[in-house]
């Protein structure tokens, strides 16, 4: 009997865990909305652990085809052999299938999700001429980042209404301090400073920035600090660098970092 791995570290922000588990028990599909780096993927991992289901993650890209999800025939010698795609595997095994950034997927690909996402919970496999009923425990979870565009308008209305939406934001400062301290393995005071810097950056109207400082970059900065870099060096590399390529904006961010973080060794 293999030992169950520990639960991925996730701190609930609101009632998202209850909503997810309720939707899971009712066989509803779930859409997670939220900015990048706010913990959507970690949340799904934690939920899969709690519900004791395998998790199959597919990172969607714009050349993802239906066959990539469902499966395809390959030739082995003189015979054809069917190979299940990740979605089919999840449907057969009753796993949680997590389509990360589903908005990136090609539109003809997302169509295959429609009968799965609504009450039918079926996956028609056209090439095999069969329709698979989802095994108990199967759950379709998609995520997207409502930055520029919404995938929901690409899904059928009927499907959209059968999806349960959970909206994520960045956690409140005290929760985020806990998360950063825990994930990066730094002491609480350092985490407080980092979170405060992150809060200030998020207040900027995003004119010069593509995205604001996510929990993820704060953790990355924290981990650099844990490795012995000075807080300022760490924040420049992990926060200012990834957020912008623009020299003026970088200078402004560096200035903010210098104001918020002390410049001594951790």
């Amino acid at each position: 009997m293999p030992v169950k791995p520990p639960r991925p570290y996730y701190v609930p922000v609101a009632n998202e865990e209850q909503v997810f588990k309720a939707a899971f028990n009712q066989g509803l599909s779930i859409v997670l909305k939220g900015p990048t780096g706010c913990g959507k993927t970690r949340f799904v991992e934690a939920m899969a652990h709690d519900l004791d289901r395998p998790l199959i993650t597919v990172s969607c890209h714009d050349d993802l085809t239906t066959a990539d999800l469902v499966g395809r025939f390959l030739l082995r010698g003189g015979d054809t052999e069917w190979v299940d795609g990740p979605l089919t595997r999840a449907v057969r095994d009753g796993a949680i299938c997590y389509l990360d950034e589903v908005v990136e997927a090609r539109q003809d690909t997302t169509v295959v999700l429609h009968p799965l996402a609504d009450h039918r919970r079926q996956l028609p496999i056209e090439r095999l001429g069969i329709t698979l009923d989802a095994a108990p425990g199967f759950c379709l979870v998609v995520s997207y980042n409502p930055g520029y565009q919404s995938v929901l308008k690409d899904l059928k209305d009927s499907t959209r209404q059968r999806m349960v939406a959970i909206t994520f934001g960045f956690p409140s400062p005290d929760v985020e301090e806990k998360i950063v301290a825990n994930e990066a393995g730094i002491d609480h005071d350092r985490a407080v400073e980092l979170v405060r810097l992150g809060q200030a950056i998020r207040r900027l109207e995003t004119g010069g920035l593509r995205e604001v400082a996510s929990t993820r970059v704060l953790i990355a900065a924290g981990r650099l600090i844990a490795e012995g870099l000075s807080p300022r060096e760490a924040a420049r590399s992990a926060i200012a660098g990834p957020l912008t390529d623009d020299l003026t904006v970088t200078r402004g961010l560096v200035e903010m970092i210098d104001v918020y973080l002390a410049d001594e060794q951790a």
């Binding site: 200030a200 207040r203 200035e255």
Partner: peptide, 19 residues
């Protein structure tokens, strides 16, 4: 990256906007 910056207080623009 130099700490001081050579273009005057303009570099504090982001800080001011954030606050």
């Amino acid at each position: 990256m130099d700490d001081e910056g050579n273009d005057g207080p303009q570099r504090l623009r982001l800080l001011a906007s954030a606050l």
